[in-house]
Design a protein around this nucleic acid. Structure first.
Lengths: 340, 340
DNA sequence: GGCTGGCACTCGTCGTCAGCGAGTGCCAGT
DNA sequence: ACTGGCACTCGCTGACGACGAGTGCCAGCC
């Protein structure tokens, strides 16, 4: 494709202006607002080429141009540098996050911060259980036939389940169970626990086998299936900002619906990596209901490990460099906080 | 005020038709759809009176009538019976709730159910800590100078906090602490705990005083201040249903914003009572941003006690009898479930 | 060959205007 | 006290023309 430097420059100008004004941009306005060094006629020729190549399009025959998803993609990949955040912004992020008292608080603050800074809908995934390891298991007798099973992970997550036992158990027995569980499981990654847990019931004393067996089944459930992933969401009201353009079409419904479906949102973080942000623009989204939006996501965690994902959902018409920078910065700070 | 039976009947008909069609209702359409036994001219006269009294109004000089907030109020208070739910609906509610495995799950299911049945935005408050009592306290050593404090309430809520101790403590000491805490606090209502907790630090052994003191301050925080109230929200996408009428005005933003502010939502449950549902129509809302909506709320809890609130937020133009019935029914079922 | 100025053309937007019709208020009659 | 009838209001719709932003293309210039 024959896109020389000036044509790329024109595309960049179109994207920037459109993002800023939310209105189709014409050749004349372009030469006025950017020092392209050529006349509007030349720009028009360039635009014709860009349109032919599918990077921009005209909403109406005689209107200005608007970037296509493909145009945004090119812009993100080759025409923009990630904006470094201002020291003031960095300080704001830090100040906002340091007060957090526990994991819940960190996640909540992070998601609100992200929504506020990007003025978009923010999503933060709680540290994934599968990627954490067991720090401690606790058994709390609630009544003679009931135990509370508490699991603490190294990412600070605490999961608890009430276990109905087949019969009454002694305090001593519980102490022994607790000891065994911890000896077997502490330090083990959650994904690796199932076989170990299975082994426990086989090696249990005959008289404690029934108890151990119920305990183990609940444990497995907690470890692997239930509540596996949790999410925090904020900034939904920013959707209303998407512009009366899209509001009238009723395109809002499906987006709100998608945002309520945890399962759908979790897909966004399927293959997040730390550091690099992933950008999905419009049609590139696997989630059909989000085809009208762009998603910027990244992983976070202490050091280079990834324990969860976070990101934002907004109109394709968004400030990519700024948003990417913000998402990455918040992710890095949250990662640091998890390292205590 | 001289509102005879027929005028009230006319008001009821207007409310019902407007709720159903979402369009201003005229005198002619009214006599056609309802067997009022009089002509449209008579209805017009009645309407004139109703308008003078402030129960209905005309959006435009030559359009049909629309109920005012005051009109809805009269309708709710005197013109409608609560619709009993169909057995099918009852069964649906029950089936949806019985599968719940823990408190989190109950609340989540309840809020989704409510949103689905009413097709509105649903809010459920977690059982309030202040109204619960302590079932058990557990101390879990995480390292030599760190404890995890877990509190279980009789409503099934589990709160946990990590406590940084001033110095290392022995296992025996922890066992003793646990014993003391439980002996003092189990069965006590959370609101009544602070004085008891204060007493603990005074009566502590000299060498354990520092430990007890940090523990107590965290405990107080957990008991009284932090995370005091939590909420679950669902059905936000139903807001988009409020009709293109309101969408265009941009009235959506403030509502979405209000829904994100937990503090604001909690106000809705300030004085909920079990059994009776409270209805706030339009202007009656203390929360300014919700003046364009109506709120139906009620309390729930085992038996006649109230441990939390739930409700829905929707357009003033809503099916009040149906919504009230649904909210009350879900609240009753959830209350039953909490009684185990 | 690439850039430019100029020009004809397209087409969406805006304001005006007339016709339609739903709905009203009022009045005279039963 | 209710009803039928009638004149009136006024928002909605569609047609129409003026306007103007923006385009594509072409001939000419460097």
């Amino acid at each position: 494709m024959g896109l020389d430097d000036r044509k790329l420059e024109v595309l960049r100008a179109i994207v920037e202006d459109y993002v800023a004004t939310q209105e189709p941009v014409g050749s004349k306005a372009l030469v006025e607002r950017h020092a392209l060094g050529v006349s509007s006629a030349t720009v028009r020729n360039d635009m014709a080429v860009l349109e032919e190549e599918g990077y921009i399009r005209q909403p109406h025959t005689s209107a200005g141009r608007v970037p296509t998803d493909r145009g945004y993609r090119l812009f993100v990949d080759r025409l923009s540098r990630v904006k470094p955040l201002s020291p003031a912004e960095r300080r704001a992020i830090e100040r906002f996050l340091v007060g957090a008292v526990d994991l819940d608080d960190v996640v909540h603050r992070a998601v609100r911060l992200l929504a506020q800074l990007t003025r978009q809908v923010a999503v933060v995934q709680y540290p994934s259980l599968t990627r954490s390891s067991v720090r401690h298991l606790e058994l709390v007798p609630v009544s003679t036939t009931r135990l509370l099973l508490v699991m603490i992970t190294d990412t600070g997550r605490v999961e608890q389940r009430v276990v109905e036992l087949p019969g009454p158990v002694e305090i001593d027995e519980i102490t022994e169970l607790r000891r065994t569980l911890n000896a077997t499981l502490v330090g083990v990654k959650l994904v690796d626990t199932p076989p170990l847990v299975q082994g426990l019931v086989e090696r249990a004393e005959p008289q404690g086998k029934a108890t151990m067996s119920t305990l183990v089944s609940v444990l497995l459930e907690t470890l692997v299936e239930r509540h596996e992933e949790r999410l925090a969401l904020a900034g939904t009201s920013n959707l209303a900002r998407m512009g009366p353009l899209d509001l009238t079409t009723g395109a809002l419904r499906p987006i709100l619906e998608a945002l309520e479906e945890e399962v759908i949102l979790l897909k966004l973080f399927d293959e997040v990596k730390s550091g690099a942000a992933r950008v999905r623009i419009g049609d590139e989204n696997e989630v059909v209901d989000l085809r009208a939006t762009s998603v910027v996501s990244t992983g976070y965690g202490p050091g280079a490990t990834v324990v969860g994902g976070m990101g934002i959902v907004g109109p394709t018409r968004m400030d990519y460099p700024g948003t990417i920078a913000t998402v990455r910065a918040v992710a890095r700070y949250v990662g640091e906080m998890l390292g205590h």
